[in-house]
């Protein structure tokens, strides 16, 4: 039997799929090279200490108001919403413990990373994208300086260092929010609250939380820098870079959350 030949529509579909696969593999190759270059530039001198401190300030200090508010509200609302379920079993005294587990194990790093992906990630994506469009990155390159080291390494390091710090801070303000609600409803004192909260928190919980936040921080920095540094030219490219930095970071953060939770569960 004669083999059926492709219709023009089939050929066109195959062509589109082929182009998309090409683009995907090219992107993977570029990401691989980007990460390889990052680790190479990270260890090779000279080091941009002053710029790293500046970026830590930008990522950490400037995110404090938003992180404080979000962490506090998360702790307070989570406590308020959890009370009725525990009250049914007369177990409201377990609230501090439940909240501590939820905040330290999951919410603090996750909420911090999502907020940072939105605030810091979009900022980095747009800033580098705009520098790319206006040839500022090229200008650094032709003046014999290393833009990758100055722009990318410093920002990725800053997010990797500061997101765990911010996550710990989020945990603290989240617990504070929770305490205020519990203190109001059950008149629990601060020492009693903290004894109850930390009764079942282990070193592994804190370690995995900090580890997760570090991975999230690296992801936000690397993705945002990659999207900005290699943005397409034109103002549309800047918008796309900022948007892609946030969306891709958030997507990867959830994937990493699942993976780390599985690993920690196996270790527990």
């Amino acid at each position: 039997m004669a083999q059926k030949s492709d219709t023009p529509a089939d050929s066109s579909r195959k062509y589109v799929v082929g182009r998309k696969l090409d683009a995907l593999f090219l992107d993977l190759y570029k990401i691989n090279r980007f990460l390889g270059r990052f680790f190479k530039e990270l260890v090779l001198p000279p080091y941009e200490f002053k710029e790293i401190v500046k970026q830590c300030y930008e990522v950490g200090y400037k995110s404090l108001p938003l992180i404080s508010m979000t962490g506090f509200i998360t702790g307070l609302v989570f406590t308020k919403q959890s009370r009725p379920s525990l009250a049914e079993f007369g177990a409201t005294s377990w609230l501090p413990n439940l909240i501590a587990i939820a905040i330290i194990r999951a919410l603090a790093p996750l909420v911090t990373a999502l907020i940072a992906a939105g605030k810091v990630g979009s900022n980095i994506g747009a800033e580098l994208g705009s520098m790319n469009v206006t040839e500022q990155i090229d200008a650094m390159e032709v003046s014999a300086t290393n833009p990758f080291k100055f722009l990318v390494v410093t920002r990725v390091l800053a997010t990797t260092i500061m997101i765990p710090v911010l996550a710990m801070y989020t945990g603290f303000v989240g617990m504070l929010g929770s305490f205020i609600n519990i203190n109001q409803m059950e008149q629990t004192s601060l020492p009693t609250f903290f004894v109850g909260a930390f009764s079942s928190i282990t070193f592994l919980d804190i370690f995995s939380s900090v580890f997760k936040a570090t991975v999230f921080g690296f992801t936000i920095g690397a993705v945002s820098c990659y999207k900005g540094y290699y943005s397409s030219k034109g103002t549309e490219g800047v918008g796309k870079a900022a948007n892609a930095a946030v969306v891709t970071s958030m997507f990867l953060i959830f994937i990493e959350e699942i993976l780390v939770v599985q690993v920690v569960a196996a270790l527990r």
């Binding site: 520098m131 206006t134 040839e135 500022q136 090229d138 200008a139 650094m140 032709v142 003046s143």
Partner: peptide, 10 residues
């Protein structure tokens, strides 16, 4: 030295 069309100042 390279002088850019739009100056490319930081």
């Amino acid at each position: 030295g390279f002088s850019f069309q739009n100056s490319a100042l930081y």
